[in-house]
């Protein structure tokens, strides 16, 4: 594939998202996906969790977590499809699907977190 000037920028997002995902996703997924549903730990109540999540800093934090992680996914998944499945003839479709998905997810995160009170 020809080098495009946007490629380093996308790689930068991939890299930043990789750091965010590596540092933050395990603890979130462990708590909300396993420890609370399985009763290993007592989950916070609705009101207090809502108060915590709607704090401006928490909303910025969640926005960064979601958006950067999605761009990390987009870049890596794009190359997984290239390398793993040999479907190079679908380049355009894959690119639009991956980065378009990340953009849509970022917009959704912005909308949801903006409305969280």
């Amino acid at each position: 594939m020809a080098k495009k000037p946007i490629e380093p920028f996308l790689w930068g997002l991939f890299s930043a998202g990789g750091v965010v995902a590596a540092l933050l996703i395990p603890v979130h997924l462990f708590l909300f996906g396993l420890a609370f549903p399985l009763g290993w730990l007592t989950p916070p109540g609705y009101e207090s969790l809502r108060a915590l999540a709607s704090h401006p800093l928490a909303r910025i934090y969640l926005f960064v977590l979601c958006s950067f992680s999605l761009f990390h996914w987009a870049h890596r998944f794009r190359y997984t499809l290239y390398d793993g499945l040999q479907i190079k003839h679908l380049n355009e479709v894959i690119t639009v699907f991956c980065y378009g998905g990340a953009l849509a997810g970022t917009a959704a995160a912005g909308y949801l977190l903006w409305g969280l009170r």
């Binding site: 995902a21 977590l65 979601c66 992680s69 890596r76 998944f77 959704a108 995160a109």
Partner: peptide, 18 residues
């Protein structure tokens, strides 16, 4: 490389939670 799919799953889950 496939670990990116669970990352996207986590974000979806978090947005549903929010």
């Amino acid at each position: 490389e496939l670990s990116s799919v669970p990352v996207a799953y986590f974000v979806t889950l978090t947005l549903v939670q929010v």
